[in-house]
Simulated scan of single mutants.
Amino acid sequence: MSYQYRDIARQRLTKAKALLAAGDEDSLTYACLEARKCVEALAYDVLAYYLRDVSLKAMKLWQPDKVMKELIQIDPGADQSRILSMQTEPVGSDPPGQWVTIGEDRRLSAQRASKMYHQLGNYIHVPTIRQMEKSEPRDVSTIRKNVEQIVQELDHVVASTVWGVVLVDGITFTCVCETPIRRTQKFLDNGHQPQCGNCGQMFTVEHENGSEDWYFGPVRFNWFCDQCGIEREILQSKAELGLDVSCPACGLHAILGSITSWRVKQDKPDGAKTSPRQSGASPDCAGS
């Protein structure tokens, strides 16, 4: 799927410029709103480059500062501008060619994007009670100056001729839903569990120092049927409240429930319900 966030950013920025040019205070407020949407679109544009690298949690984020913070955990350079150059390789005795600049992928830093976003939001919203108590007049000229500076910075980013450059050297594996997942070795070495950005499936990671092999195991919840004793399991991504997980061998009725973690509630052979067994509380119903 093609995401058109770069085009959205351009459209919002164009509207912000037109509203600033109107010169009145109401138009200034709406210019702040359009500029804020431009910041959002630029953050989502960068997020779209890392779809194989991000968790489902990151896909649900909408605040630009939180989006960039999540991306930096995966690629420390996700919020940094970079110049893309290329050269021809040497052939035989011929030396390599001259470096040719292709363009610059300009990005807002996470810190600057966060400041812009909250600053513009502050101009849009009604003053807080504390601000009203201070009786500080709204300095329109200062606000306009700050917004014009923000718009100028956004214009510099949007005008870049190259974008979407990702230089992450990651480890890729395939989720149970067939979606490719990529994470950097640093991310995995820090003990983080990868999560699929498509279905939300979590994975455990095994790796021996010095080995090039990585093993990714989908997290499952396990329990034993109280009537026939067979072991049951369900993928973490498939677990949902009220799901029927009745035993396929003996037919004992069971449903999946959750308080703070997923649990299984089973009927006794005589039809009465047993006490709930939480996935993290007993050895026969533990996540693996």
Results as ranks from 00 to 15, higher is better:
Arg182Thr: 03
Cys175Ser: 01
Ser141Asn: 14
Ser258Phe: 04
Ser141Trp: 05
Thr172Glu: 07
His207Phe: 10
Val157Ile: 15
Ser261Phe: 05
Trp214Phe: 12
Leu256Lys: 02
Leu235Ala: 15
Ile230Cys: 10
Thr204Trp: 06
Gly210Leu: 05
Ala249Gly: 12
Gln152Pro: 03
Cys225Trp: 05
Ser237Met: 01
Arg220Phe: 10
Gly217Val: 05
Cys225Leu: 06
Glu178Ser: 12
Gln201Arg: 00
Gly200Lys: 03
Arg183Phe: 05
Thr142Pro: 08
Gly251Trp: 06
Thr142Phe: 03
Glu178Asn: 09
Val151Thr: 01
His192Phe: 06
Leu188Cys: 14
Arg220Gly: 00
Gly164Lys: 01
Phe187Ser: 10
Cys196Ile: 05
Leu154Arg: 09
Phe203Asn: 09
Glu153Asp: 15
Val166Glu: 01
Ser261Glu: 01
Ile230Thr: 14
Thr174Lys: 01
Val245Pro: 05
Gln201Phe: 14
Glu206Cys: 12
Leu243His: 03
Pro194Thr: 07
Met202Ala: 07
Cys228Gln: 07
Val157Gly: 13
Phe216Ala: 11
Val158Pro: 03
Asn146Ser: 11
Ser160Arg: 04
Ala254Phe: 02
Met202His: 09
Gly191Ala: 07
Glu240Cys: 08
Leu241Lys: 09
Tyr215Ala: 14
Ile181Ser: 02
Leu235His: 08
Thr142Ser: 15
Leu243Gly: 05
Glu153Thr: 14
His192Pro: 06
Gly197Arg: 00
Leu154Pro: 04
Cys225Met: 10
Ala254Gln: 01
His156Gln: 14
Gln227Cys: 15
Asn146Leu: 07
His192Ser: 14
Cys177Arg: 00
Lys145Met: 08
Arg144Glu: 10
Phe224Ala: 10
His207Met: 09
Glu233Lys: 14
Val162Lys: 05
Phe173Tyr: 06
Leu256Ile: 09
Gly170Tyr: 06
Cys247Leu: 03
Leu167Gly: 03
Ser141Tyr: 03
Cys250Met: 00
Val162Tyr: 06
Glu233Thr: 13
Gly210Ser: 10
Phe216Arg: 10
Lys145Glu: 02
Pro218Trp: 03
Ile255Gly: 04
Tyr215Gly: 12
Gly200Gln: 04
Arg183Asn: 08
Cys247Met: 01
Gly164Asp: 03
Trp214Ala: 11
Arg232Asn: 08
Asn222Glu: 07
Ile181Glu: 03
Val219Lys: 02
Thr174His: 02
Val205Glu: 06
Phe224Gly: 11
Trp214Lys: 12
Asn222Lys: 07
